[in-house]
Design a protein around this nucleic acid. Sequence first.
DNA 1: CGAGGATACGAACGATCGTGCTAACTTGTC
DNA 2: GACAAGTTAGCACGATCGTTCGTATCCTCG
Lengths: 204, 204
Amino acid sequence: MTTTTARRRRSDGERSRRTILRTAARLATVEGLDGLTIGRLASETGMSKSGLFAHFGSKEELQLATIDTAEEIFEGEVLRPALEAEGLARLRALCERFLSHVDRKVFPGGCFFASAAAELDTRPGPVRDRIVAIYGEWTALLEDSVRTAQERAELAESVDPAQLTFELNAMLAEANGLFLLSGDPRAFDMARRGIADRLERAAA
Amino acid sequence: MTTTTARRRRSDGERSRRTILRTAARLATVEGLDGLTIGRLASETGMSKSGLFAHFGSKEELQLATIDTAEEIFEGEVLRPALEAEGLARLRALCERFLSHVDRKVFPGGCFFASAAAELDTRPGPVRDRIVAIYGEWTALLEDSVRTAQERAELAESVDPAQLTFELNAMLAEANGLFLLSGDPRAFDMARRGIADRLERAAA
DNA sequence: CGAGGATACGAACGATCGTGCTAACTTGTC
DNA sequence: GACAAGTTAGCACGATCGTTCGTATCCTCG
């Protein structure tokens, strides 16, 4: 039988890999996941092209690893803090943490996944599939929060969870886009006001 | 005195220029305005790289001309038909024509300007400036329609035009993005429902 | 401490990028 | 019908793309 040789990594390699991927995640929101180039990333991290490349084996693997890293950052900045609340409060917290993470420029090019989704929209392949899956998880999380809020009688039974999620998501994404285009933080205020109004209307 | 030699174009050159730019506008929504490459565009139109390049002189000029062409197409498909109506009907028509032009795949990658805005968000320069200006004009058109609808007592005086525009724009853009990601035309239904609800709530 | 594997680098590859140069041809004008 | 100007192609350039290979170095484990 073939013993699967699990290549154990060295600590220094692990560390530079993290450094590379954190830089890549930030850079990708500016240059795009495709515009993210090996040479640029190498000079940004002070490594050689070949040394950096050896960590991934292909550009596609680098992109997938970058997405994983962006997901971890997003979890830490948005999801984990918001998941401490429940029901309607969780829904509000998810929206607020999302807006906050754009405002605080966790990624210099705004929401990583909004940027990646717009870029990979029409380009089939595993990278796009990964982005679609993550978008689906985010949407499902919002919808679940709506449903829980309904069970707790914080939102009306008559509310369509998918519809409400669509509208909330729309305002979050638009705030992200408008802020990036205009640089005006009033984009967040408009999103907050729109979301608050919409939730009030959906209240039980 | 120096006579300004206005370079008059020849009819065959004008025709191929149009062909190139129409192809470029479609292609840019898939590959991106930066991913739009001279060589790709040349082979797509059956021209030589240098012959095509001579029309523009630089890639940036090509990008700017492509944006102009996309604007003309957008005017024909969305603006002109909608501007026949007035007030609230115009506002509804603008939304409906926008959704329709995405659904009909006027551009294979959805709304040209949503795609370009997401790409150029964070990259300063004349190309970005042009996209920002066009986004501003679109927003101003929506806002003006809201104001006119208020003057005609079709929408309540208490409505904040900028806020309503933000929310409508958000749902249009989200429908565009969601449709491109999922391929599911129910994205348009959710946008229509959300917009109808929002306008009903804003009615006088 | 010695061995083995992970890590990193330098050099080089074919391909493609945007961009020039030159020359051939078409078109429109007098 | 000739001449000027606009149009297109061919070829080549330096740069950069993703990728490969050989080699030197460092960490880790026995």
